[in-house]
């Protein structure tokens, strides 16, 4: 049995499939299904594509409700649970605040600008019925970026399994699903990127089943007046978060692992670690002083 590797770009990040199969044709078939499924999700949920459901909902903000199918409804329901469990920090309506915090702004927002955009943020303002969603304020936006990519990793793992893959790894930009150990029975090794030293690993995680996801404030950031700001924004204050540099969580599914890492990163470092401890699921976190926390993986020593 051989392991075949497929690399592609989707949902704004590098994606990787490693599929162990008796022959290349099965691996190819699975890869075709997985890439087309990824594209289906991307075209359905991307906020950059004008005919995506996300764009249709966003463009109808303040105007009228938009009909949604059960998959969208289920993802919205799940996002609502994330909102509650994060006590309001994980909010799929907070993306609009990126208008204030991006590389091109080069200045801090004014209070009136903050007020203007904060008015358009708030999961609780979203009106959801059985088959419709409505953003009541003109300019409100949904952004499934923090949910769909993680979910797609689970979907691809389930597809690959149903097609007969028993050893494999799905990696969608750091959201990783494992389908059994490597063909020789050894676990897969997953490196956690060092938050400040781009190409090296700060820790290595060994996993044979389930999922692991990593989020880092270091991934995307911008500097204003010599200060560095993370792309993660607190939806209540409208200001970027100064939280953990990186968090990884292992869980049976990528969507749950991903939600937990995202929530941990939106909190202060202390609260983030407390939250991960409370979840009682394996985690690895790096604080702002590069201190390592958690029981997941082996820390690499330089």
């Amino acid at each position: 049995m051989e392991t075949y590797q497929f690399n592609f770009q989707a949902m704004g990040c590098p994606c990787e499939l490693r599929l162990a199969a008796a022959d290349r044709s099965l691996a190819n078939e699975v890869a075709v299904i997985c890439t087309s499924e990824t594209q289906r999700f991307e075209s359905k949920y991307s906020r950059y594509l004008t005919d995506s459901v996300t764009s249709r909902v966003n463009n109808a903000s303040g105007l009228h409700p938009v009909t949604i199918d059960p998959e969208v409804a289920a993802i919205l329901d799940y996002s609502g649970v994330c909102y509650v469990q994060s006590e309001g920090l994980f909010d799929i309506t907070s993306g609009v605040l990126r208008q204030l915090w991006n590389k091109n702004m080069r200045r801090l927002p004014t209070d009136s600008e903050l007020e203007f955009y904060l008015d358009k943020v708030g999961w609780k303002k979203v009106e959801i019925s059985a088959n419709e969603v409505f953003l009541p304020i003109k300019g409100m936006q949904l952004d499934f970026g923090g949910v769909v990519k993680e979910y797609v990793a689970d979907v691809l793992a389930a597809k690959a399994r149903s097609m007969g893959i028993e050893h494999g790894l799905i990696n969608l930009g750091g959201d990783i699903c494992i389908i059994g150990p490597q063909p020789d029975g050894t676990p897969w090794s997953i490196g956690i990127t060092h938050p400040t030293e781009g190409n090296s690993a700060i820790a290595v995680i060994e996993l044979s089943e389930g999922a692991v996801t990593t989020s880092g404030g270091y991934e995307r950031y911008f500097d204003i007046d010599g200060l560095r700001y993370s792309h993660l924004i607190n939806p209540e204050t409208g200001w970027p978060v100064e939280g953990l540099l990186s968090a990884s969580v292992a869980a049976p599914t990528s969507i749950v692992a991903g939600s937990l890492t995202s929530i941990a990163l939106l909190k202060t470092p202390e609260d983030g670690i407390r939250f991960l401890e409370e979840c009682a699921t394996p985690y690895f976190a790096v604080d702002q002083q590069l201190g390592c926390h958690g029981n997941l993986g082996e820390v690499c020593h330089a």
Binding site: P70, A74, V81, D154, A251, T253, I255, E278
Partner: peptide, 18 residues
Amino acid sequence: PNPFLALSTAAMALPAFA
């Protein structure tokens, strides 16, 4: 409730896990 359990339960309603 433990957030991990709350989210895991909610995730089970997603179509991929049916």
